[in-house]
């Protein structure tokens, strides 16, 4: 009974073998992502890692979580949440990518200003960019 497989059966019962196959596929994909990730490909690396992760995620959702056999509404919920994740990712990145250069955080790739050093002294973190913490002398001279 356990070895009898009917993949098309609705809410039907599959053999346990199917889970082992998915598990094997997930391990192979993990191996691929580790090997390719260690090559540190400059532009394609992130894309490839995300494609592999999405494939693995799809296997987990469809077969381990049984999304492939659940009702359509479940799939709709899942798809809508992914749509909102993509929107949430795209909008801040479009914003940052098209910003006026001086509006980007100091020290970042798109800024000419010096980074804020918050490691050495917590007080310094309050004065960003090229600004130095005003000394008490300068303050008294200004007045």
């Amino acid at each position: 009974m356990a070895t009898d497989t009917h993949p098309g059966e609705h809410h039907g019962h599959h053999g346990a073998g199917r889970y082992w196959v998915i598990w094997g596929a997930l391990l192979v994909l993990t191996l691929i992502t580790v090997v390719t990730g260690r090559m540190h490909m400059p532009t394609f690396g992130l894309m490839l890692a995300l494609i592999i992760a999405t494939t693995k995620g799809a296997l987990v959702a469809l077969f381990f979580m049984h999304l492939s056999e659940h009702q359509g509404l479940n799939r709709l919920f899942f798809a809508v949440s992914l749509l909102f994740v993509l929107l949430m990712l795209a909008i801040p990145l479009i914003d940052l990518g098209t910003r006026y250069r001086y509006a980007t955080p100091p020290g970042s790739q798109y800024s000419d200003m010096q980074a804020i050093d918050i490691g050495a002294n917590a007080q310094q973190g309050r004065y960003g960019g090229n600004q130095k913490k005003p000394t008490s002398q300068e303050q008294s001279e200004a007045h």
């Binding site: 659940h70 479940n74 919920f77 899942f78 809508v80 949440s81 992914l82 909102f84 994740v85 949430m88 990712l89 801040p92 990145l93 940052l96 990518g97 980007t104 955080p105 020290g107 970042s108 790739q109 798109y110």
Partner: peptide, 25 residues
């Protein structure tokens, strides 16, 4: 599934932080 979508969006916030700061640094 409805609960899990909220979980996905909870983690998505952190993934977006990751994306934004990776883009900057």
């Amino acid at each position: 599934w409805l609960f899990l979508t909220t979980e996905i969006l909870l983690f998505a916030g952190l993934f977006i932080c990751y994306g934004v700061y990776r883009f900057l640094f």
